[in-house]
Design a protein around this nucleic acid. Structure first.
Lengths: 178, 178, 178, 178
DNA sequence: GATGAATGAGTATTCATTCAT
DNA sequence: AATGAATGAATACTCATTCAT
């Protein structure tokens, strides 16, 4: 594999597991079997690496949200979105952990400001497109509520409640949007 | 004011604004007009100071959640809870910022593990008491959903969407729980 | 001895011998038997240490130039100045080396800009006071020439000619100003 | 232009402006639109590049000092030398800056030791040839003084006094040697 | 001649913590 | 209770150099 890709992969995992601030580049390089200088060569700085990683996860998210079929009715689309959200949440906790982290932490938030804005408006636009078909009058508020609910679920599942009843919540929320 | 209290107050603000990791104690001491040695004298370590602060904010939260009047019916209680949540969210962004921060960040999460558990079970217990009166069958899921929704709203309001329609969301959610 | 003073003394010597850029703080600390953190504690940064040192050498120079006796006639004063210059140049090459270095090197020049200006105007003022008594009409040019000659001698003696005939030059120039 | 030449030209300017130590090769390569590997290919090392540049400036100096006409009397020769020195000093400050720099800085001084010796003995020889014709007895001291004066003027003009009266100094010194 | 990925030693700086006073 | 000098490990970053292509 390309050393650059290797670096991104390892860094993504470590930043997610240990947090950006608490992951020294020395550890990243060591685990990626790569010299320290290579980061500066490819990404200029630690922040540069972070941006690269965030950009990549955005592409992943965009990929998921773009699959929605035009043939489906809006409620089917929502359910599909929810299904993919919950399966992803269970399968890849770290992915969510990382994204929560960098958005909430003031300095990473600042470093990624433009990228976060770009990503979140994309997500909002896509969500609103679906709610527009259901109820164009309240679509703005409903879209925000929909996104907030999922974020809140992820936050509580990941960070707060160890015994969070994810499966029941999933059933409950899917029933609600059917 | 007591130097100890002064230290806590300044540290709370700085940790909230800049994040725990990115706030050197030297800066805290400087802004609090206090010598470096005093922190270890009073709080043993930086983590100790963090725990002290988290404990204090927990007391504040407990205070809010305990006001609920026994004379009110459960829906009135929910609405009162929502009102106080939204007014607090608007009034003291930093308070929420701080709490999100330390819960999501892996190492602060670890330092505060017991305190976070304690606080969140208290909140959950109090919330469930209300939902038990409304619908004892689904109270567990509904309580979790209620908490998740509020957290998600805070997260999106604080960290993601600059133009988050807080007022409309508030109206929407209050109507929902009435 | 005070560790702070010790640090300044060692750093002065090393900066003179090896040049500012080529003297790592690690070496300074090692030779001064002092931890790395102490530099940041006392001088904030390497540049801060440099400024401190330059300031100290300025005080030394000011000390020398202020001894000139009011009872002497101007030519006697010049000769005394020359005598002290040449004996200092022979006794403490490093002192001159250091001063040349930091003035000529662009980045140290920038760091010390205000201090260099201050020092050089002091020297010029003092020199001109003497030449004013001899020939007030050409005192400006003559003062500048006097200073330039001495600097040029130091430069050639230290940096260019290994076999620079310092003694003969001294005789020649003292005769000239008598 | 040849990439090799381009590299030398850019490096000369940058070394002069920012100093040798403070000019990374990466910057030189970037500004010269050239890859990093090319430097070691052409000059072996950074020191090699420095030597190449110093050699080139020496040729320039030798060129200037060799024009002196045999038909002129020695005083005329001195005046011509002075004229060319002052016009060069005004026209190309960086040229002098660079030469001062590398001679005074200990490590560049070491790298260029043989070249500096060679150049300075050439200059001294040429100067002494003129002074021998005027006054063979004191020619050694007078030659050294002549060179030192010019160096001192350059030093003060470039590095110390912003309001150095170069024109008046020039008149004064030309009158002196006529 | 020319490129650019990769290295690794080196360097200033940061910062929580300790401890004598 | 309070100070501030001192420590030393940790850390991001720099930069000349090498080497395969």
């Amino acid at each position: 594999m390309n050393k650059r890709e290797q670096l991104i992969e390892i860094a993504t995992r470590l930043f997610s597991e240990r947090g950006y601030e608490n992951t020294p580049l020395s550890v990243v390089c060591e685990k990626a079997n790569v010299s320290k200088g290579l980061i500066s060569h490819h990404f200029k700085s630690k922040d540069g690496l972070l941006r690269e990683i965030f950009l990549k996860t955005t592409k992943l998210i965009v990929g998921i949200n773009t699959i929605d079929n035009i043939n489906q009715n809006p409620n089917e689309q929502l359910v599909e979105l929810l299904e993919s959200f919950f399966s992803q949440l269970e399968a890849d906790k770290l992915f969510f952990q990382f994204n929560m982290n960098v958005i909430v932490q003031p300095n990473t938030r600042e470093v990624l400001d433009d990228l976060i804005k770009e990503r979140s408006s994309f997500i909002f636009k896509k969500t609103k497109e679906v709610f527009d078909k259901i109820d164009s009058k309240n679509s703005l508020v409903k879209s925000h509520m929909f996104i907030a609910e999922l974020d809140g679920i992820a936050l509580n599942y990941l960070g707060v409640y160890r015994d969070f009843p994810l499966k029941q919540i999933k059933e409950y929320i899917i029933k609600k949007y059917t």
